[in-house]
Simulated assay, not measured.
Amino acid sequence: MKKIFLILPLSMLLFAVGCNRSMEHSEEALVSEVSTSKQADYAEAPEVAAADVAAGAAVDAAANPVNPVNQQLKIIRRGDLSIESKDIQASKKNLDVLLKKMGGYYEQESSTSNRDELTTYNLVIRVPSKQLDAFMGNLENGKDKITSKSMTSEDVSILYYDVESRLKSKRAYLARYQGMVASAKSVKDLLEIQEQIRLLQEEIDSSEGLLRNLGGQVDYSSININLFEYNANLPMGSNSFWSRLKDSFVFGWNLIETLALGIVGLWPVLIVVGLAVALIKKFRKNRKNKFLNKE
């Protein structure tokens, strides 16, 4: 009887331990199954990887903020000039020589002449930013008169280095996506990875174009020049008696030309009026002759 009482508790203890181990094995199997399911879902959805890549890019950008303080400033300088010249052809040649000496070039060049044979040049020139001050000094100390001048400076350092930083991140993630091509498990995955590569490449091309544009404007300053002559033989910008006398002669001559051309332009009317006057005179003469013959 005592043996039965001893065996019964021992059996119950062994049964409890066995149940506990069975439950632990069941939980481990369930966890393994869920983990396998998640990995399969992740492999079938590369867009999740894309989101992770984009999130990683955002984290990298936040961890490496743009700080142009310790970098070279990116300044865009522009100018507008109006220059009055006594001898505009000589002034244009001098400007050509000076521009070549400074390493600049014409971005745009046009000229116009009015009926008084006064020439005006409208020029857009690009000068290396390092030579801009020397270029302006040569113009200001030259023989020609600068009638107006406007210079501006724009700091684009933050924009430039921000685009540059983002471009580096995009190139890094483009390399990651290109590495994922070989590990694609299905055609769907491959197409989605290639689409992400295409979008990244377009963004990289756009950023590279923006950097080139900004770099060109920073390295070469742009100046709009209006080079004109008021009157080659008179003091610059003068309104003297001789200038007004010449203008009066020109006005009188133009008036004579206008009247002469107007009269010539009315030749049909003059012919009709002449014929009408001749007919009237003939009619009166015939009438007078008839009256004399009756007497």
Score class of each variant (00 low, 15 high):
L13K: 02
V17H: 07
C19R: 03
C19S: 05
C19M: 07
M23N: 02
E24P: 03
E24I: 12
E24T: 09
E24Q: 11
E27A: 06
L30C: 11
S32D: 13
S32C: 03
V34A: 05
S35F: 01
Y42F: 12
A43R: 09
E47C: 03
E47P: 05
A51P: 05
D52R: 07
V53F: 14
A54M: 13
G56Q: 07
V59F: 09
V59Y: 08
A62P: 03
A63C: 09
N64C: 03
P65D: 04
N67Q: 11
V69M: 10
L73V: 12
I76D: 02
L81D: 00
E84M: 14
E84R: 11
E84D: 10
S85L: 00
K100A: 15
K101W: 11
K101D: 15
M102H: 08
G103T: 01
Y105A: 12
Y106S: 01
E107H: 13
E107S: 15
Q108W: 15
Q108E: 13
Q108K: 15
E109N: 05
S111C: 05
N114K: 00
R115K: 15
R115G: 15
R115Q: 15
E117N: 13
L118G: 05
T119N: 06
T120K: 11
T120C: 08
Y121G: 00
Y121P: 03
L123E: 00
L123D: 02
